[in-house]
Amino acid sequence: MSFTESTETITGCNVRFMRGGKGAPLLFLHGSSGAARWAPFMEKLAENHEVIVPEHPGFGASDSPEWLDGMSDLAFFYLDVIDRLGLDKVNLVGGSIGGWLSAEIAIRNQTKLNSLTVVAPAGIRVKGLRKGDVFMWNAEETARNLFHDQTYAEQMLASPPSKEGLEVILKNKLTTAKLAWEPRFYNPDLHKWLHRISVPTLILWGDGDKVVPPGYGPAWRDLVPNSRLEIVENCGHLPQIEKTDRFVQLVDGFIREATR
């Protein structure tokens, strides 16, 4: 696997980055389980892009800064990151709370963005459409509810975390709570401003998502003007893991289209 690791200090916060590949920049913003490892989908996206994967402040090997109180802080932080890395025409891809974060960045400033891909994003609420209570699920329920194909869940359960791994899981969960405990996984104001996003936007959703139900897909499509919704079949909350090839094909194709 061809990637490099580095730590950069941005806005007083040490952030761990993984990078690989050449091409147009693709900034991947992870969800609540972090981005500790260079995953196969990153490797595949790196065939056509310069893939940049930070661990958000408060996650994994990155610092937990004093200033981090909520999603707005994280969105402004990433505007600092984009400036600091000198990124331009960047393709922003975010999953789950990373998708929410991507939209929060885009409504604030999209001048450096080429495209936006949100994968099963949290961030809005459709009344009556309940998200899974990830804070109440134990390890087994979490694994089972994350995936449609239970062999992935069983793989996850077959290798319980080490003590260090558990510390990272709990750290990630704590920051997730900061961002999303209340209101639960959404920003009551976000839906009012999603119309500001004008870059081409791809919305991806697994049809069997039990964390953020796929019923949220059409709501996002209706709120983001220049957007398209793709449903990934037989897939849970993490299409990039569970349907890697389909995910990469859709994202690559979309970015090609958006770049023309």
């Binding site: 804070f135 109440m136 699920w137 134990n138 003590k163 558990l166 510390e167 709990l170 750290k171 969960k173 704590l174 997730t176 709570a177 900061k178 405990w181």
Partner: peptide, 22 residues
């Protein structure tokens, strides 16, 4: 009550939570 109810994230430090879980 299950652990997830008793110790939600941030209720105690990560260190004491690792201790409690083990």
């Amino acid at each position: 009550m299950p652990m997830e109810m008793l110790l939600p994230p941030g209720y105690t430090s990560v260190k004491s939570m690792v201790g409690a879980l083990s």
